[in-house]
Design a protein around this nucleic acid. Structure first.
Lengths: 141, 141
DNA sequence: GTACCTGCAAAAGATTTGCATCTTT
DNA sequence: AAAGATGCAAATCTTTTGCAGGTAC
C-alpha cells in the first residue's frame, strides 16, 4: 500500500518533481495513519532522514494538499492534521483524547446522496459532504 | 433575539459574572452572524467599546464556549471561529470564499439518528454529529 | 470583602516567507 | 540549463499566560 514505487508514481503523476523530501513526507503520512500533525511527521522522518527543514515539511504538505494527495483536517484543538486521501470517509472524533479515526460507510453515503438529491439546499450547490461524529472510543480511549 | 436583557440572562444563568466585556462579546457573536473570528469580534466591539484587551476576548470566548453559550468552529483555513449555540445545525462551507452558513434540517437529523441507532459503530459511542457540506454559494458568492 | 475578571505585555506555538543554494528533469 | 525545491532563519499571526489592579456580587 505504501511502497516506494507507488509513492513515487503518485508524486510524479501530479507533475511534481520527485525529491527525497517529498517521498519521505508522503510516506510518513501513509505510515502514521492516525492523522499526524506536521510535528509528528517531522519526528517520524528524522529517524531515517537526517534533517528535513520544518519549513519544507509545511511547504510540502501544502503542495501535496493542493494536488489532492493528502487532506488537511482540523479539530477543536488548534493544529492542522493531515490524512492520505483514499476513498470517501467520515471522521470519528473524541474530544477527550483528540483522537481521530476514519469511518467508511457506503450505505450511509448513498443514503445521504439520495437525500440531498431530493432536498436541494437554497443558494448552495453541494460538492461534497463529510460527517463529523463526536463521541468516545470504547476500545482503549 | 439579541437584546441586552436576554444576553445578560444567558451569562448570569451560567453562574458567570455579568461584565461589560462579556456582554459586548456575546452580543458581538450574536450580531456578527457569520461565524466571526476573534479578530472580527475585536474590531466590531471597538466601535462602541473603547478598548477591550485581545487577551480578554480570547479568554471570554473560551469561557462562553465552556459554558455552552457559543461554539468553536474550525475550517481548513487556520483560525478559530465562533458561533452562537442555538439548535442543532450543520455547516455549509465554501472553500473559495471561506464563508460558513448554518444549515438546519430536522428531517435530516432524524434520519441520521435513526440510521446510527440501527448501525452501531464498532468501538465508538456517538455523542453528536455534524455534517460539513462543502460547495458553492449561488447567491453572491 | 472576596472571588472572580480584566488589562497589559510578554511568551508560546504553529505556520509562512525570503532568499541563496542545490536538485530534478 | 532551466525550472523548481530545499534549508535556514527571521517574521508573522493567533492564541495563551502571569500577574497586578479592578469590579461584580
Amino acid at each position: 500500500m505504501a511502497d516506494r514505487k507507488e509513492i513515487r508514481e503518485q508524486i510524479a503523476g501530479k507533475g511534481l518533481k520527485v525529491t527525497p523530501q517529498r517521498m519521505a513526507i508522503l510516506e510518513a503520512v501513509y505510515d502514521l495513519n492516525n492523522h499526524p500533525t506536521a510535528d509528528q511527521i517531522k519526528e517520524y522522518i528524522q529517524e531515517n532522514h537526517p534533517s528535513i527543514a520544518v519549513g519544507t515539511i509545511y511547504k510540502t504538505l501544502d503542495t501535496l494538499g493542493e494536488k489532492g494527495l493528502i487532506e488537511r483536517v482540523k479539530t477543536e484543538k488548534d493544529v492542522m492534521r493531515y490524512d492520505i486521501v483514499t476513498k470517501k470517509h467520515h471522521h470519528l472524533y473524541s474530544n477527550e483524547s483528540d483522537r481521530i479515526e476514519d469511518y467508511f460507510d457506503d450505505e450511509l453515503n448513498k443514503m445521504l446522496e439520495e437525500y440531498f438529491r431530493k432536498h436541494q439546499i437554497k443558494n448552495f450547490k453541494i460538492d461534497d459532504f463529510k460527517i463529523h461524529l463526536t463521541g468516545k472510543f470504547t476500545d482503549n480511549n
